[in-house]
Nucleic acid binder design. Structure first.
Lengths: 202, 202
DNA sequence: ACATCCCTCTGACATTTGTCATACGGAGTG
DNA sequence: CACTCCGTATGACAAATGTCAGAGGGATGT
């Protein structure tokens, strides 16, 4: 039984190389390739692959967003996310979106082929190390608003701008930032942003 | 004439796939692979390749650092940097370190093989788009100290800590930050850090 | 010799952030 | 119903940051 694959990665070099390697496996066949999120979606619609191997970061829409749409449109298509930067939060988001597999790019092609088969068989596979990280990072202690405000603060915007963009009063914004900072044990909003990013909470 | 290659990339999947693809070219042969900077250096010493294909971001020491050491120890070995994130400053640093080629991972394997040959022949190759970015980004307007202080401010440390780490008075640190911020046209130190990072000035 | 730049510092001031207390309405829970 | 969160807000105060003017010393270039 052959497994029909969709391969999506914005790096042509990687995608091509990966395609070549996976094609060496007798039971795997690549039916489509894509370089962006929307393209991946279009390709999936056109070819209805058994398994979609998606890079986490792509222009247009990231792997998790694509996965969400895919779940709705092609329930028979299993999604496997491959990523360079394994942040705990990404894994959580991905699983919530119905992704069946999540692996770092540090695995070998051999392993990847096995994992593709695992996912195709309807099982799940999550890289043990990433899983451990996700568990030890735990749940976000931030409320929805706190996370939102922290996110808006991420690029160094002043309180006034955050307040405007979030349609809140400046005082409220400062309250949220303050509580986020203390919950994260940070010294100021900027280290708080960094910590939250590392744990994948924003 | 065959070209003997060293391949260094921390992502096993990518490295393996790349190796497989490049091995298809008759005149290219991979004599060594490495997953970290130090490992790349050790491998280069052991195998004295003609061309070293290095990922820009690797654990241990980045591609440019490895290139610098390589220039000194193995002048006959040409260095080609491959990267996902093409920041202008990286290109500049790389060229200063004697790197002969600089390409994004979006090129095809076919192109990469050609570029490897170009570099091996003693010519240079820089991706046109990255080159354009680097030129438009221009030179850093920051003085050495300003850049240093800005770098220390990058992870959100308070002025007191920056001052201590740079062995400067707090007032001086604030002066440098202030002038860096105004030179970069930023609103505050944090957006300044972001801007400088984007242009590769830190 | 002079001008110009960078590095370093100080002191003063305005602005922005961070913290805290307090308040009110809504949602959910016991 | 009382209790506890969360979201939202205000006001006040302390601390950090941003800005400016000025000043001395070293290096470099004309």
């Amino acid at each position: 039984m052959t497994v029909r694959l969709l391969l999506a990665d914005d790096e042509h070099l990687i995608r091509g190389a990966l395609a070549a390697l996976l094609a060496l496996e007798d039971d795997l066949v690549i039916v489509a390739e894509a370089a962006t999120g929307p393209e991946a979606l279009a390709m999936a619609r056109a070819h209805a692959p058994d398994v979609a191997v998606l890079d986490l970061q792509m222009p247009g829409a990231d792997g998790v967003k694509v996965a969400t749409s895919l779940r709705a449109e092609l329930p028979g298509c299993q999604v496997l996310i491959v990523t360079s930067h394994g942040r705990p939060g990404h894994l959580k988001r991905a699983l919530a979106a119905g992704v069946r597999g999540f692996v770092p790019k540090t695995v070998s092609a051999q392993r990847l082929a096995e994992i593709i088969r695992t996912v195709h068989a309807g099982n799940r596979y999550v890289d043990p190390e990433l899983a451990a990280d996700a568990i030890s990072a735990g749940d976000s202690p931030l409320t929805a608003r706190e996370a939102e405000v922290l996110e808006l603060a991420a690029d160094g915007a002043p309180v006034a701008e955050i307040a405007e963009r979030a349609a809140l009063s400046q005082g409220t914004v400062r309250n949220y930032l303050s509580s986020a900072v203390s919950k994260l044990g940070a010294e100021n909003r900027h280290t708080a942003v960094r910590l939250a990013r590392e744990r994948g909470w924003v």
